[in-house]
Amino acid sequence: MVRGGKMSRVDQPSMRGFSACLALIRRDLTLTFRSPGQAINPMAFFLMVATLFPLGIAPDREVLSELAAGIIWIGALLAVLLSLDSLFKSDQDDGALDQLLMSPHPLPLLVLAKVFSHWLTSGFCLTLMAPLLAIMLHLPSEAFSPLMMTLLLGTPVLSLAGAIGAALTVKVQRGGVLLTLLSLPLYIPVLIFATGAVSAAMQNMPYTGHILWLSVFLILGICLAPLAIAGALRVINE
């Protein structure tokens, strides 16, 4: 009698998927705190991008306030891309990725935990830094709240979409450039709606539509991206 694959009720251990995710998140966070270099790089890069633009274009107020949202968002996008390269590669190098694939828990769930811990150390920190840069770039005050909201909703999508590229290029030696190439097309809708929201706010028009669209992308990312990431990891590690 071939059952549907589940052991009999009695000896089936309760599957604690959630505690496995928590353990993964705790592990990644302690790893980041133990070697903070990994988390500082994207923030330093973000700050540097924001200082290069005034030097390159013009320091005066009207020009910068017009460009501020775009500069901040493109800086955040590139900084996230920078930190994505080592997402799965560090696990691949020391064999921890095999343990991840060997876990009885569903891989998309574990991958979601890993991407969440990556977002905490990269996207979230960039969002916290964004007001500082907004001031430096003379962003008008009414545009601060949409900027923060779009960053808060948009950076997780950047991590999720970028993780697909990271999973696909985990075994490629110098996969950084390829990762950027694979992830950029997925970033474009987020960039468009985020900067659209801020510029709409600057012309004091309502920007709730943009925020709703960004949350649509976020939910779409949370549902679909882990499946693609898990599929890619399984395929690459055959």
Binding site: R27, T30, L31, R34, D94, H105
Partner: peptide, 25 residues
């Protein structure tokens, strides 16, 4: 157990064993 030990070098042996056990439920 593959060729590589599957341990994170920044963590202590105890922490490594904890996250691997949690992962294996």
């Amino acid at each position: 157990l593959g060729h590589k030990p599957g341990l994170k070098l920044d963590l202590t042996p105890l922490e490594n064993l904890v996250w691997r056990a949690r992962l294996a439920n």
